[in-house]
Amino acid sequence: MRQFEELCEGCIATVVSRTTPVDACRLSLVSNTFRSAAESDAVWNQFLPSDSQFMDSIISNSPSLANVPSKKSLYLALSDRPIIIDNGLKSFQLDRKSGKICYMLAARSLSIAWVDDERYWKWIPMHNSRFSQVAKLHIVCWFDIHGMISMRDLSPNTQYAAYLVFKLINASGFRNPDSPVEISVGVEGGHRSTKTVYLDPNVEDRSHSGEVGLRQPSVRNDGWLEIEIGEFFNSGLEDEEVQMNVKETNDYTSKMGLFVEGIEVRPK
């Protein structure tokens, strides 16, 4: 380590920039020389998305970011909270540990069967949602929610997972253990991974003894529920569309009380 410290600060910065944000923070504790190198703009610029036009568009959606004192400060700001973009239809954020790109597609950007008929769905504001409106299920017998995102918008060479982000408030029709919800994810025109889950965390799973029970949602740090829809790998070699689907079309029991914030895509 002493021989490594004898390198010039620029060389150390080059090496550190080939690691990860977590490693850079750890290496900054080694010595003053390492700290200066590990906190330099040269290092943290490597952890930010490389498309300058894209970064300019992100900063334009949050003017306070234009005044951050360093690239590290910009990175931390982008990983600390989501930035609303695309006229409120999407949020952007960096994964704090890896610097990989994360998106949430707002409910307004999803294709939801009958969403424009107020007999079935309504658009309402919710105080703890990052978006101005969420979709509230008034009453339907079955539902179908579909989202799509382009691989080119995501970090290459990265394993991703998609999650439905929702709430159940005074809900009914989701506790039938014999009628789980079907979820799937896959590249458009290619293989789709399909499985079944329960949206209600309180449903009693009736899986046969010895079998793995169906997946149920977990509570997020922001208070919403999420359920994993599926995984996919972005090789970065082709411009493909990833399709994500959540539906229940077999049980014609009336369903209500589902609030959809969106579908989040983040590194697995």
Rank of each mutant, 00 (worst) to 15 (best):
M1R: 02
Q3E: 05
F4R: 01
E9H: 05
I12D: 03
I12G: 10
V16S: 01
R18G: 11
R18D: 09
V22L: 14
A24V: 07
A24E: 09
S28W: 14
L29Y: 15
V30C: 10
N32Y: 15
T33A: 12
R35D: 11
R35K: 15
A37I: 07
S40N: 12
V43T: 06
W44T: 01
N45E: 14
N45F: 14
F47M: 09
L48N: 03
D56P: 05
D56G: 01
D56K: 10
I59S: 02
S60M: 13
S64F: 10
P69E: 06
K72G: 04
L76P: 04
L76E: 11
A77T: 06
S79Q: 04
P82M: 04
I83D: 08
I84Q: 00
I84N: 00
K90L: 10
F92T: 04
F92V: 00
F92N: 00
Q93P: 06
L94W: 14
D95H: 14
R96W: 14
K97N: 14
K100A: 13
I101Y: 08
Y103N: 00
M104H: 02
L110K: 03
S111R: 03
S111E: 13
V115T: 06
E118T: 07
P125N: 09
N128G: 09
R130D: 06
S132K: 01
S132G: 06
S132V: 07
A135D: 10
A135C: 10
K136R: 12
H138M: 06
C141W: 05
C141V: 07
W142D: 03
W142M: 04
D144F: 13
I145N: 02
G147E: 03
I149D: 04
S150H: 10
S150M: 06
L154E: 02
S155V: 05
Y160C: 04
A162L: 02
A162G: 10
Y163W: 12
L164G: 01
V165Y: 13
L168I: 02
N170V: 03
S172M: 05
R175V: 04
D178P: 01
D178L: 11
D178H: 11
P180A: 05
E182G: 04
I183R: 03
I183M: 02
S184D: 10
G186K: 05
V187F: 15
E188A: 13
G189H: 08
G190D: 13
G190Y: 13
H191M: 13
V197E: 05
V197H: 08
D200C: 13
D200P: 07
P201V: 09
P201H: 11
N202C: 11
V203E: 12
D205C: 07
R206W: 13
S207T: 14
G213M: 08
L214D: 04
Q216V: 07
S218D: 08
D222C: 11
G223I: 07
W224L: 03
E226R: 07
E228W: 07
E228A: 09
I229C: 10
G230V: 09
G236M: 02
G236V: 00
E240P: 03
V242A: 01
M244V: 05
M244N: 04
N245A: 04
N245H: 14
N245Y: 15
E248S: 10
E248T: 12
N250D: 14
S254Q: 00
K255N: 10
L258I: 08
F259I: 09
F259E: 01
E261P: 01
I263V: 11
I263M: 12
I263H: 11
E264Y: 12
V265H: 12
R266C: 14
P267D: 02
